[in-house]
Simulated scan of single mutants.
Amino acid sequence: MAYTSVNWNVEEDEFDEYVWDKATAQFWLDTRVPVSNDRGDWRTLTDSEKGVINKVVGGLALLDTLQSEEGVNVMREDARTRKEVGVINDFLMMESIHAKSYGTILSTLNDQKTIDDTFHWMNNDPRMQYKVRRINEIYQNGNNLEKKVASVFLEGILYYSNFFTPLWYRGNNKLANLSEVIKLVIRDESVHGTYLGYKFQQAFAELTPDEQTRFRAWMDDLLADLLENEFAFTEVVYAPIQMVEDVKQFVRYNANKAMNNMGFAAIFNHAAIEDINPIVMNGISTETANHDFFSQVGAGYLMGNAEAMSDEDYDF
């Protein structure tokens, strides 16, 4: 049988091309964001603050390594269209860039011993390892729908407890370049979660009502398990800077967003999440451009321009 070329002039699903255009327009590299300019702010932080930031950045490095090496790859196997494979390939590249970016942050701001200690922690912390084992087990053995749910939960919920701190410091006019990297990542993950949620909805609609009920029960059990672990992780990591409850509220907020991406109602009522830290929410809503699916390349990132960013670059 002859191998045929993908024809981008033939429309299979118009959303594939739309996401391709958005995702490729947002391409960026960590080498264009001068994290070294944050060293002055870094020296003003307490050891506890530095420890929390290193752990959340290190945690993101581990989670994005999983996503770049396993998570995005397995989505390709269940692609509904050939253009979807191209979109997934773009996602895979960006997840590798994300994973590298976290290493850039750690190596720029820390001495070698601290870097080694952080990598040792992320590779051995029981809560971190529980997340990656639980998600990767689904990537390796789950069906089409289960893998998409695992990916949406990872990128849409488990990442966000780690995103909280950089956004908080940016709102307090510190670590502007570190947070710029994080906000570029958030913008990418917004696209990934929306797209995979859309593809999930297409496949979920093909199940019978009984199959949908059984699947929803499985999904709810998975979410409850992941959230229990995430809240326990939060209690340990954020206790030194007294932000445990703020982060938990932020995780609940993003759990609702993840469920919405897959076509389901929010699981936490508005009263349970109404007290999201306004500094962090402002960072989420403005990030590089806008924290939504339709955002473009960030104001602080210029392809081919390696000059340091000034304060004016962050006036949105």
Rank of each mutant, 00 (worst) to 15 (best):
N256P: 10
A306K: 13
Y253S: 09
F233Y: 15
N290E: 11
A258W: 01
K257W: 09
D275E: 12
F268Q: 03
M303I: 11
I279L: 10
M281N: 07
Y238L: 03
N277C: 04
L302H: 08
L302C: 05
Y253H: 13
N261Y: 06
S295I: 04
F250L: 08
T286A: 10
A258E: 05
A255N: 10
F293E: 03
E307R: 15
Y253V: 00
H270C: 05
D246T: 05
S285P: 04
G263M: 11
I241T: 10
E287S: 15
E307L: 15
L302A: 07
Y301R: 03
S285T: 14
M281F: 10
K257E: 11
M303E: 11
Y301I: 10
G300D: 05
I267T: 08
M262K: 02
V297N: 11
A258D: 00
N260C: 05
A306S: 14
H291Y: 08
G283V: 02
I284Y: 00
I279D: 01
P278Y: 09
D246M: 02
M259Y: 07
G283Y: 10
M262A: 08
G283N: 04
Q249R: 12
A232E: 06
V251I: 13
N254A: 04
I241V: 13
G304S: 08
V297E: 11
P240D: 05
A265D: 15
A266D: 15
F294R: 13
N260S: 08
K248T: 05
F268C: 08
V251K: 00
F294P: 01
V247H: 05
Y238P: 00
M303R: 13
K248C: 01
M259E: 01
K248E: 04
N261L: 03
D292T: 06
H291L: 06
S295A: 15
R252L: 04
V236C: 03
A299P: 01
K257N: 13
D246S: 14
M243K: 15
I276V: 10
P240K: 09
Q296Y: 12
G263I: 03
M281Q: 11
K248R: 15
T288A: 12
A266S: 13
F233K: 02
I276M: 08
K248S: 05
M303K: 14
A239F: 01
